[in-house]
Design a protein around this nucleic acid. Sequence first.
DNA 1: ATTAATTTGTTGACGGCGGAAAATAATTGG
DNA 2: CCAATTATTTTCCGCCGTCAACAAATTAAT
Lengths: 392, 392
Amino acid sequence: MRSPGHSRPPVAGATGSLVFTTVLTGGPLSRADVAVRTGLSAAAVTKAMKPLADAGYLVEVEEPAADLGSRRVGRPATPVRVHAERCYFAGVKVTGDELIGVVTDLQATVCAVRHRSLRSRAVEDVVTELAALVADLLDESDSYRASFGGLGVSVGGDVDPESGMVRYSPFLGWRQVPFVDLVATATGLPVRLENDVRALTVAEQWFGSGVGAGSFAVVTVGTGIGCGLFVNERIVSGAHGVAGEIGHLPFDRDGPLCHCGNHGCVEAIAGNSAILDRIRQTTGAEVADLASAIELARNDPAARRVFAVAGHAIGMALAAVANFIGPERIVISGEGLAAYDLFSEQIRTTFAEHAFGAAGDCALIIRPLSFDDWARGAAAVAIQRFIAPHTS
Amino acid sequence: MRSPGHSRPPVAGATGSLVFTTVLTGGPLSRADVAVRTGLSAAAVTKAMKPLADAGYLVEVEEPAADLGSRRVGRPATPVRVHAERCYFAGVKVTGDELIGVVTDLQATVCAVRHRSLRSRAVEDVVTELAALVADLLDESDSYRASFGGLGVSVGGDVDPESGMVRYSPFLGWRQVPFVDLVATATGLPVRLENDVRALTVAEQWFGSGVGAGSFAVVTVGTGIGCGLFVNERIVSGAHGVAGEIGHLPFDRDGPLCHCGNHGCVEAIAGNSAILDRIRQTTGAEVADLASAIELARNDPAARRVFAVAGHAIGMALAAVANFIGPERIVISGEGLAAYDLFSEQIRTTFAEHAFGAAGDCALIIRPLSFDDWARGAAAVAIQRFIAPHTS
DNA sequence: ATTAATTTGTTGACGGCGGAAAATAATTGG
DNA sequence: CCAATTATTTTCCGCCGTCAACAAATTAAT
C-alpha cells in the first residue's frame, strides 16, 4: 500500500526517535555523548543506532576533526551525524493571498523556495494551487521525489493536527475544512497540518533557538502578534485549539481601537499596520510599508517615538509571557525586527520593569524572520512527524 | 536505614503509579475500566494491581452495589478502590504569621487540623514550631504515625522542590533556605516542599476539579492573585521558579498604584485589601474585613460597584489565562468567593468579552477555598510524591 | 618498544514488563 | 443445563534496555 518513493519512517520505537532527535538537534555526537544526554546505556545507544545507520539516516563523521580541544586519553570518539540529504521534506504556509513553499532536507535546511499568489480563497482553488506549487518544488530535483519524507502545511487559525481539519481560519474564511485529506488526495503525499505559529515553534524547538531548552516561547511580531509555547517537553496547543493568543492583552483602556473590538490591545499598538497608521497620523508622511517607516524613523523623532511605544507594548507582552509560564528563553521574531535597534532598548527596559522576580532571568533572543521561515516551520512539522510518528 | 513506621512507597514502576492514580482519581473502577482508561492491556492491569492489593493499598469493593444502571450480561465487574486509611499524610502551609497543618488519608480527606500562629519568622523558629505542630497532629491518633506516608510543606514564593530549597519567599523574608533538610531533621519524616499555589493545583489535579482534564488552571483570589497551571500532563513550574504570576498583569495605566510599583495591576484592583481600601474610600464605611465588606455590599450600591470592578479585573485575568494556554477548565478559588454572587455576573461577562474565539469554551468552575485547603494541597504533594516518586 | 591506563564502542546473557491468546470465572437468557 | 457474554487470570512470548565482559584505539609512563 505504500506509494513508491516515500521513504519509510526510520524509527521503530520511542528510543529510536529519542536517539535520532538527539543527534539531529545536538549536531555530531559520539555514541557516548548520546548515552549521557538521553540517560540510556551505551549499549542501548549502539543498538538503537544500528538500524538508523543501516538505513542511511545516520553516518559516522569521516574526518574526526581531532583538533577540537580534546586530546584526552582513551579511544577517540567517532561522532555520528544525521545524513541530511537522506530525505527531503516540503513545507507550505498558506496565507490569505499567497502560498509560500519550500523544500528542506532532514535538517530543515531550505533547498528550494517558491511563492504563488492566490487568486481565490475557495478551498478547492487553494488545494489545486497548493498541489501545483508542491509539484513544481519537487520537480526541481529528482532526489526530492526519490526520497521524500512528507509534506507539512501551516495555516493561521484554529487547526487540529490530529484530524487534519482547519476548524476555523479567519484569514481564509474557512470553517471545518478537512484540509489534510484534500491535500493528500491532490498530491498523493503524506501530509501533516499545523497552526502556523506552532509550526514555527517546532522549527525553533528542533533547529533553532529552542534546542536544549526545557521550555521556551516564540513571540511573532507582524501583522498580528502571536506566541508559540513549548512547556513540559511539548508544544502547547490548547484544549480548544487556541493558545498563545497574546495579541489582545489589553494594556491601555484609552489606547487605540483594535479590530477585536477592545481598546489598547498589544496588536493595536505594535502590530505592523498599527505602527504604519500611527506614523502616518503623527508625522503626516506617506509611508507605504514598514521598510519606509523604518527609514523615516532614522531621522524623524516623532516616528521613532511610535516605534518606542510599540517596543513598550511588546516588552509588556514579553513580561506577561515570562510571568505566566516562566520559560527558559523567549525568541522574538518578525519582519519588523529588521529595525531591531528601534525597539530594542524599549523592549528590554519594559521587560525588565515588568518581569516578576526571577522571571526576568529569562533570556530574550532576537531572531529576524523571513516569510520563507514560516514555510520552513511547516516542513519542520513534517520532519517531526517523520521521526516521531507517535508523538502528538 | 528506613525509619520505623514510615510506609514504603507502594509502587514499583511507572505502570504501577499509573494504575494506582487511575483508581485513586477515578473512584472505584473495575480492572477492565482501568485497562481502557490507561490504554494498558487487561493482563497488565491485573499484574500491576497484584502487589498493590497485597500491600493493602487497593481493595475490592465488597458490596457490588449492583443497582447502578448495569444489569448487563456477562461476568459482573469487581470494582477496586483505594484503601484510603492504608496510610496517612501531613501537610503544612507556612504563611508569614501562621502555620496551618492537616493530616489526610490517602485520598486527601482531611482527618485532623491544627493552626499555630508564628511569633517569629526566623528560620529556626519556624522549623521548631512546624515540627511541634506536626508532632501534635500525629499524636492525635496512633494510626497516623503507624502508617505514615510523608509530610508536604507549602510556602509562597520561589521554591525548588528538587533541592528542597526556599529560594526566595517575600512573606517570610527568606532567601536560600534549605527548608526540606531542616524540617526533615527536626521531624524525622520524609518531607516534600512545593510552592503554595502549585500545591493547591496538585490537589485539584488529583482530588478536585482538575481530575480528568488534560489541562487546567487554578486561579486563586485572596490577598494576592495567583495561578497554578497544569499543561501537557504536568504542572508548570517555570524555568526560574516563577510561573502563573498573573497578579501583576496591568490593565489600567491610570489604575491604583500596586505594591509592585506599577499601576492598575489585577492585584491592586481585585486583591482583598484593594477591595477593602476601595470600599472604605468610596463609602466611608469602617469595614474591618472582607466578610463585613460583603455584608455592606448587599445593601450599598457603591460597595457593590467596587466588587463589580474587581470582578471585571478578575474576568480579564481569566481571559488572559484562557487565551494564553487554552486550558480545558479554569478553577477559581479564594476566600472572597463566598460572595460569589457579587462577582459572578461581571466575571463571566468580562471573560466572554475578552476570551478569544474558542478559548471562551473553557469551563469556569467556582470553588470556594478555606485556609485548610491550602494545607491539604501540601498534603497532596506528599501523596503524589508517595505514589509517583519518579515524577518531577 | 612495551605496558598500563583510559575511554569508546560492541556483543551476549539476563530480566522486566507488556501484549496475545487461552483458560477460567461469573452471570443472563433461554 | 446450555449458549452467550463479559471480567479476570494465567501462560507464553518477544521486545528492549541494562549489566558485564570484551574488543578497540589511543595516551602516558617505563
